[in-house]
Design a protein around this nucleic acid. Structure first.
Length: 884
RNA sequence: GGGCGCGUAGCUCAGCGGGAGAGCACUACGUUGACAUCGUAGGGGUCGCUGGUUCAAUCCCAGCCGCGCCCACCA
């Protein structure tokens, strides 16, 4: 017997372990079946499960479980990402707490520490995913720094280098002075900051008291100025072009150049040029062959290229000093408050510097072309489609990708330098030595490039590196390309685009057919969840409180395409109640002896009630399947919720009570028991991808003996022949009639004693039983002395209209608030009068009659008739109300 | 500046050419009946505004207003 309540915690861990032990998650179990592959977006190894992961992985698990039940050979490839900067920071901070500094430790020892940390704490998120119910093939778990994946990374790097698609270049990069590394454009986040705009006067050479004014938000960079630019068409400055001015504080002669970059509308129209510290100025500098003076060191302190007074100052201290010194010399024309956007490093949290260094770049523009084409051709498709445009937008304007990082944790770049700076890029040090020997004709001392690769470089290979590439493994052959990538839009550029590029270049095939982009999960107010705001919802706490199934169902039901999810606990509680409802529905069937019959044939049932539920369930199967096919998770969840609660529980289970509990027709009862058990079983199948735990538990307790585990049971077929229209129509009548009766009684404020659940009579033998079932109530109500009998006209009309063949009387008794009833009826009558007038006008409209489809016209006619009937009923009821 | 999206019930959101919907919240009644709750009923909406297309617009188109996000922008 089922417990009175469902206890998620115990059930969840038990079934997860059983599935694992049975190898239910493993790929390759069905040799002949078509493969279905999803690679997990690898969470950072430092990560712990946040609500976004919960959504992302729930959706993947829904797809995976569903396809598995459909008989596909599914592979959900799990793993974690080494997350270069993030992990290095975590371990570094931990060591600092122990009083150890990274640089004191040295590179090798530090990297060992990181590995130690990974072995100890790196599995957290994996365990958390398991609590969510994720049915990944854990036996195939990978880590981006695994030996195999590292080989793939090296091979890709070497191949791209030899193809000229990776190169080394000296140019401005975004430099994070806190982490002391280059970062890519994507890792820069713009923040709006209130700052100042300083107008500085630079003396013009050879013209006493003549100045050219430049505006800047970054006074400290003036120390690296090497020119002043004005627009070629700006007549204010025409005569100055070609002359020089003198850089205050430094004394350098700066040429005044004409360049389109200078915007006459902005500032003073003249702009100082600092090629080593500004991307635009860098370009100007290249155009005019200007000197590039770098005044900062890697930590953002002023270096030896700055005048002595400023050396060693932090860039912000230097700013204050420069302004003060300029003021002292009377060279500050004015200062304005200025709202502007400042680039910050997304990890370091400090403003990044455009910084002149040697870095490694990927020629993304070349690699992007096939990736654009693949989407153009529809070989890879975005769902929802609107993201296609975002993808194109970025791909078409793609910039060289800076892939080197001045970190210790990551894939070290397989490049070695000879004594003269010659570069040897090879898979191994031995190969590099060999190449050097060939090059120099003798043994040469080589030093390896100390930099590591951007974490996203290895992530870009994930769909095939995890399968064993560059080895020619059976897995690569079988599971690549993958079917769908499930992710959120914030990593389309970081990850999706780059997987497309690498996949197409090296595998000659797209990495996935579909990219499903889901929403972001926000808090109730629509704000991003963040630790600093204190509005994070911890999925593990939610699982503890509501159960994994409730959390999963909530996320799935709210995963509408194209809108962010504002998660509230109220919603979660609602779906927890749904789990409870399902549990109790199962209890009801059990208590009524509904045991699965292996010989049950849904096509052979005879009772209307049973034919109806078989059909309704079949329709739901089709609906859910179709919605999942289209990645409409919310609709699929809604369809199944509706059916379970509002069809199966509210009506079917209510209807079967009299059949099963009143004796009577034994054959009908037996059929009904078998049907109920069968229907519940199907329902559990449908719900399993969404709520794996409670459904598996119920299946184990109530399913057929030897039926095995639900996780590997077959997904129901929607056999259209099972949809019985006659039964559906008949039951629709019944449902409608009962609702109408309920509405009447509800409106009358009939006291409890006079309101049994439902009672009516119809020419259906098993439903007639129901009257008997409720007889006690009716009798009791009739005998109550405190009640006055009221017969409402509506009820009479309903009885005659809805059940032409049956006698149908409802002994409604009770008290009535006549004034309230009069008000209500008046309102209804008024509404209907308006409705009728509108429909009449429509039906008199020649254009409408001429152009609208016939069935629409017919429909409007029917509505006119219905409205008139209702109007008559209500008007009569109104007239018959006793005066007060 | 370029791009994308969103304004529908008190709240959170579906729907998207012919009858305005769900969940939560609210009100009333009921509940020793499978229901740590559940049932039944009810109130509540100029579907952001203005035009256009159409026989017909919450839905399609344009403009406007409000909100959000992404990209670019450190004079």
């Amino acid at each position: 017997m089922l417990d009175k309540t469902y206890r998620p915690t115990e059930v969840e861990s038990r079934h997860y372990a059983r599935w694992q032990d049975a190898g239910a998650f493993a790929c390759g179990r069905r040799a002949g079946a078509a493969p279905y592959t999803i690679v997990i977006p690898p969470p950072n190894v430092t990560g712990s499960l946040h609500i976004g992961h919960a959504l992302n992985n729930t959706l993947q698990d829904v797809l995976i479980r569903w396809r598995r039940m459909q008989g596909r050979d599914v592979l959900w490839q799990p793993g974690t990402d080494h997350a270069g900067i993030a992990t290095q920071m975590v371990v570094e901070r931990q060591l600092e707490n122990e009083g150890v500094r990274r640089r004191d430790l040295g590179r090798e020892a530090f990297v060992d520490k990181v590995w130690e940390w990974k072995e100890r704490s790196g599995g957290t998120i994996t365990l958390q995913l398991q609590r969510l119910g994720a049915s990944c093939d854990w036996s195939r778990e990978r880590f981006t720094m695994d030996e195999g994946l590292s080989v793939a990374v090296r091979k890709i790097f070497v191949d791209l280098y030899k193809q000229g698609l990776i190169y080394r270049d000296k140019r401005l990069v975004n430099w994070d002075p806190k982490l002391e590394t280059a970062i890519s454009d994507l890792e820069v986040q713009s923040r709006e900051v209130k700052g100042k705009l300083w107008y500085f006067k630079y003396p013009v050479e050879g013209a006493a008291d003549r100045f050219i004014t430049v505006a800047t938000t970054r006074p400290e960079t003036m120390l690296g100025d090497t020119a002043v630019a004005v627009h070629p068409d700006d007549r204010r400055y025409t005569e100055l072009v070609g002359r020089h001015c003198i850089l205050p504080l430094v004394g350098r002669r700066l040429p005044i150049v004409a360049d389109e970059h200078a915007d006459p509308e902005q500032g003073s129209g003249a702009v100082k040029i600092t090629p080593a510290h500004d991307f635009n100025d860098f370009d100007v500098g290249r155009r005019h062959g200007l000197e590039m003076v770098n005044v900062l060191d890697p930590r953002g302190y002023l270096n030896e290229n700055a005048p002595e007074a400023y050396r060693g100052l932090d860039r912000f201290e230097a700013r204050d000093r420069v302004v003060a010194d300029m003021e002292a010399q009377g060279l500050v024309e004015r200062v304005e408050e200025h709202l502007h956007v400042v680039p910050y490093g997304d990890r370091g949290g400090v403003p990044v510097e455009p910084y002149l260094t040697d870095q490694w770049y990927v020629d993304a523009k070349t690699l992007a072309q096939p990736a654009i084409k693949a989407v153009d051709d529809g070989r890879t498709r975005f769902v929802p489609a609107q993201w296609t445009k975002t993808y194109y937008e970025w791909m078409r304007n793609i910039q060289p990708w800076c892939i080197s990082r001045q970190l210790w944790w990551g894939h070290q770049i397989p490049a070695w330098y000879g004594p003269d700076g010659e570069i040897f890029v090879e898979l191994t040090e031995a190969d590099a030595k060999e190449a050097a020997r060939t090059h120099y004709g003798t043994e040469a001392e080589l030093t390896r490039d100390p930099d590591v690769l951007d974490t996203w470089f290895s992530s870009a290979l994930w769909p095939f590196s995890t399968l064993g590439w560059p080895e020619e493994t059976p897995e690569v052959a079988r599971y690549y390309p993958t079917d769908v990538l499930v992710t959120s839009f914030d990593i389309i550029f970081f990850w999706v685009a780059r997987m497309m590029m690498m996949g197409l270049h090296f595998m000659r095939e797209i990495p996935f057919h579909t990219v499903y982009i889901h929403a972001l999960v926000r808090d109730v107010k629509g704000q991003k969840m963040s630790k600093s705001k204190g509005n994070v919802m911890d999925p593990l706490e939610l699982i503890d409180k509501y159960g994994a199934d409730a959390l999963r169902f909530t996320l799935t039901a709210m995963a509408t395409q194209g809108r962010d999810i504002k998660l509230s606990e109220g919603r979660l509680a609602g779906y927890r109640n749904f789990v409870t409802k399902l549990w109790n529905a199962a209890r009801l069937t059990q208590m009524n002896g509904c045991v699965p019959d292996p010989a049950f044939d849904p096509a052979a049932v005879g009772e209307t009630l049973n034919r109806w539920i078989v059909g309704a369930l079949t329709a739901t199967v089709a609906e859910v399947t179709d919605y999942l096919d289209e990645y409409k998770f919310d609709q699929a969840a809604a369809a199944i919720y509706r059916f379970t609660w509002h069809t199966f529980c509210d009506w079917y289970l209510e209807f079967i009570k009299p059949v099963l509990q009143q004796g009577g027709d034994a054959a009908a009862a037996a059929e009904t028991r078998a049907t109920a058990a069968w229907a519940l079983g199907r329902l559990l199948h449908l719900l399993h991808p969404f709520m794996p735990f409670v459904t598996e538990e119920l299946w184990q307790q109530l399913g057929p003996k030897d039926a095995g585990m639900l996780i590997t049971a077959p997904w129901p077929e929607a056999d259209a022949a099972l949809i019985d229209r006659d039964a559906a129509a008949e039951m629709d009548w019944v449902v409608q009639a009962v609702s109408e009766v309920r509405a009447v009684r509800g409106d009358l404020n009939v006291p409890a004693s006079a309101r049994p659940n439902l009672y009516y009579k119809i020419e259906e033998p098993h439903l007639e039983n129901w009257i008997n079932y409720n007889k006690d109530f009716i009798t009791r109500a009739s005998n109550s002395a405190s009640l006055i009998p009221i017969h409402t006209p509506i009820t009479e009309v309903s009885a005659n209209a809805v059940f032409p063949g049956g006698t149908f009387t409802i002994p409604l008794q009770g008290v009535i608030d006549v004034d309230a009833e009069r008000q209500r009826l008046s309102r209804e009558v008024e509404k209907l009068t308006g409705e009728i007038a509108r429909l009449d006008a429509k039906l008199a409209n020649e254009n409408f009659l001429a152009k609208a489809p016939a069935e629409v016209v017919e429909e409007q006619h029917e509505r006119r008739t219905d409205a008139a009937t209702a109007h008559a009923k209500l008007a009569a009821a109104l007239a018959r109300l006793p005066a007060t």
